[in-house]
Amino acid sequence: MTAQTQEAQAAQDRDAATQRPRTAWGTSLLAIVEREALRFLGQRGRFFAALVRPLVWLLVFAAGFRAALGLSIIPPYQTYITYEVYIVPGLCGMILLFNGMQSSLSLVYDREMGSMRLLLTSPQPRWWLLFSKLVAGTCVSILQAYAFLAISAAFGIVMPWLGYILVLPALFVGGLMLGALGLALSSFVRQLENFAGVMNFVIFPMFFLSSALYPLWKMEESSQLLRDICAVNPFTHAVELIRFALYAQFNGWALLWTLVATVAFGVLALWGYDPARGTTRAGG
């Protein structure tokens, strides 16, 4: 490279630095959250479907299962609890899990339809755009989880009032983690029709191999291996984080696990959406 070329390039770099768009952190985040919320509110069916699923588990499955499963007193509980009380945090996790996958499904759809291109060609840092998408999906999940907690309360499953406040950050972290997983999956699954299969391979093992429906010691009675798998499943830790928060207690280990998984899935998603890998298929 000649000195003249280097000088021209340096001048261009200086020009580009002055033209560089200001990062609109708040504006872009709010817009993405608002769009997701409007889409969600416009899809009433999605809202009710998201609520019906955990309510069926709570009101039908738990009622039938109550007699079969005896629960001992384990933290954060300080007394014997009914099975319905036990599975409420797990069902909150289920809402986050399904919603995280639903959001990623819509990302695959968005990418096929083109609106993801609109997002990725805006002059904001790509990681911030993807993070904003995650936050938007998580906000929708949290709305659903609170609606579920309200209905559960109406059926007599009431948590300490402080728990309803402290569960907010737990739901947020859990929602981010599961959203990041969905985002990572959406970057690797190229076609919408393939995604349903992937979801089944992720959602069901993640949900059933966790502490959402039964405590780990119960699982250990059946199989040590299954118990160990449950113990490393990040979904278990998201559920435990929610469970402890609902009783106004802090579970640092669960938080650490959930955060580590969030970062790992987030990095994977960023790599998946790296333009050097390409997010579009070749066309005309």
Partner: peptide, 29 residues
């Protein structure tokens, strides 16, 4: 517009308006 896309992607994208082949409007808004 004089900005190298590889070296200054955000500055270059800010100079660019794009209409994609696929529709990108949110039809419910």
């Amino acid at each position: 517009a004089g900005v190298n896309l590889a070296r200054h992607p955000r500055a270059a994208l800010a100079q660019m308006g794009v209409v994609f082949q696929q529709p990108t409007l949110d039809l419910d808004l």
